[in-house]
Amino acid sequence: MKREIPLLITFIAGFLIVVALFIPHPPFNKIEETFNSWYIIVAGFTFILGIDSLILHNWEKIRRRSEGWPFALTVILSFFITLIWGIVSGVRTGHIFSTNSTFRNYFYLYIYVPLQATMFAILSFFIASAAYRAFRARTLNATLLLLTASIVMLGRVPLGNVALIPVISIAVLMLLWVLVDELKYVTSPTQRLIYIGIAVVAVVAAFPITKFLYHNLSPVTDWIMNVPQMAAKRGLFIGLALGGIAVSLRIILGIEQSYMS
């Protein structure tokens, strides 16, 4: 019974939600809203579990003086300072975020918001390092990614078409440098010919490509975003929707039970 009752509740709740999608008539039109309200109430109570876990976990670290225990002390102190300051400020001013609330004016605006902004700002450096790894032209796919991303990036910034000329020039020079460097190790005459052919094509094609992109950078960028990018994204969405139905059906029919171990 320990498993059957939750499974029955899941089946009834899931089935009702699916039925409600197709029946707008009361009471079906209110089912999802009602279930969401119930979830919010239950989730509110589970916050006590979360706080309990947070304090106990960090307190244990302090007690055992395990590695990084000062961080655990900072967490507990910050938790109680925030809680007490928030309550006192809220009681004194009527609302925790009123304009004369010291919690809002000092803690929220000068500590919380800058801390959040700092974490978010770190993202820009991580994007650069991840992009560097992803865009290294080691394979054909990575090279295509590098080329496409370069066009889209240049197309999305002011004066991107002006910056395009030095970018393509440097790219061609780098390609020539790599080809000449590789040529030293190539012994087969056919391969040598292919390398020289690529170098010639790169030099000859660089000018018309630059000229074309200089005048059409914005439409090319839009085409990349609206056609191949959007097609891939929609493919993912269709897969996700079908996968979502499969998971939902597994849960509703009681085939999938790992969530209630």
């Binding site: 790894r133 993912l236 897969g239 079908l242 996968g243």
Partner: peptide, 18 residues
């Protein structure tokens, strides 16, 4: 995809338990 070694794309993740 850029930062990790393996990525379960979309429905692959939903298929994981099966």
């Amino acid at each position: 995809i850029a930062a990790t070694d393996y990525t379960l794309i979309g429905e692959e993740m939903y298929a994981a338990s099966a």
